[in-house]
């Protein structure tokens, strides 16, 4: 652990040139993650970054840890294999809206429901960046792109709603332009036991610049977003004078004093789902922060527990035992 204590952000920078477009939101995330890694107390040889394909998926190359840049959409399966093979590793997965929710949507659903102890960072830029600007499953309806010259007719999906629907045990959202918030959320994710799913709004300035400006731009951010903090009143606004109250199924804006306390650990993910579907085109703020954080059995640990149990009840398997099991007979 001596090494871990001495680590700084610099130790996590690899010797590879970072090749994202200058000004891409990915830089801020990389910077933040490198900082987090230095503070979570895990030696870098115990950390493994796994990714699929896309701009975000180049991430592992820039981390001075173990890294596996796999194939499009399949990172959850690789991460599951790695974590299950060696549960001592701290496994992080980096994906995007196309990689994680379109081609890899199936795998994403299953890693979330299994609760494999993997931290998932989904960079959502609402566009396909690496293939140069086609609409993605999170692009808003009407978005004009190279493959939707008259505007996309697809209805977008919400990554947080999706994760909640899959039974994820930790679901959060943050934004590339709000470093402090990102740090807090990523630290909470790092400390969660089980799958942690973090959607990070990430600006692609080349193909979808300003996608989140309506609520994330610094001048409006305080009034247009709300930070869901566990067990804290749901307040927002420049002066923290506004609050949210959930009446029945509908959230409404109230004064700070009347605000409900946010609980991410209710038995049902219902409240978190209501938050994730809050229509921010209206006057409602866009929720960031921690939607859900509950404890549940962890896949990789349960699997190894079964193996240990089998070994202790049946005795460890040897080649001799393997071959001679069942009925045998001898020819002399």
């Amino acid at each position: 652990m001596a090494e871990a204590q001495a680590l700084t952000k610099k130790d996590f920078k690899s010797d590879q040139d970072v090749r994202w477009c200058p000004g891409c939101g990915d830089y801020a995330i990389l910077n933040c993650v490198q900082g987090i890694m230095a503070s979570i107390g895990v030696p870098k040889h115990q950390i493994c970054f796994v990714s699929g394909i896309g701009c975000s998926s180049r991430f592992p190359y820039y981390m001075n840890t173990f890294g596996f840049h796999s194939i499009h959409g399949r990172a959850p399966a690789f991460a599951t294999g790695i974590k299950t093979a060696n549960p001592d590793l701290s496994v992080w997965m980096v994906t995007g809206d196309g990689d994680g929710l379109s081609i890899g949507g199936n795998h994403m659903a299953h890693i979330l429901r299994r609760n494999v102890d993997v931290k998932i960072l989904l960079f959502n830029n609402e566009i396909y960046g690496l293939t140069k600007g086609q609409y993605s499953p999170t692009s808003p309806q009407g978005l004009k792109t190279k493959t939707s010259p008259m505007g996309s007719v697809d209805r977008p999906m919400d990554p947080v709603s999706f994760a909640l629907g899959c039974g994820a045990t930790f679901v959060a959202r943050t934004i590339d332009t709000h470093l402090k918030h990102m740090e807090q959320v990523l630290l909470a994710a790092a400390h969660h036991k089980g799958t942690a799913f973090v959607e990070i709004y990430q600006n692609c300035l080349i193909f979808n610049d300003g996608a989140f400006d309506a609520f994330a731009e610094k001048t409006v951010r305080d009034d247009k977003t709300i930070d869901l903090r566990p067990n804290q009143p749901m307040v927002f606004g420049k002066n923290l004078d506004k609050g949210l109250k959930v009446d029945g199924w509908e959230p409404r804006i109230v004064t700070a004093a009347e605000a409900d306390v946010w609980r991410p650990d209710t038995h049902s993910p219902g409240p978190a789902f209501v938050m994730s579907q809050m229509d921010s085109n209206s006057t409602m703020p866009r929720p960031l922060g921690i939607f859900r954080a509950v404890a549940a059995p962890i896949f990789d640990a349960s699997l190894h527990e079964q193996i240990q149990r089998a070994k202790s009840t049946k005795g460890p398997g040897t080649l001799e035992k393997l071959l001679h099991a069942g009925e045998t007979w001898t020819v002399r």
Binding site: A77, I82, A85, N86, L303, Q306, K311, P316
Partner: peptide, 30 residues
């Protein structure tokens, strides 16, 4: 049924995840 031999079996969500998990495990030393 060979868990006592230390065998890890993962019934994946599909064929693709099945091989990808196995390749991930190979990367990790299995």
């Amino acid at each position: 049924a060979y868990k006592h031999y230390g065998v890890i079996t993962f019934q994946a969500e599909d064929e693709i995840a099945a091989i990808c998990s196995a390749l991930g495990a190979a990367y990790a030393g299995c």
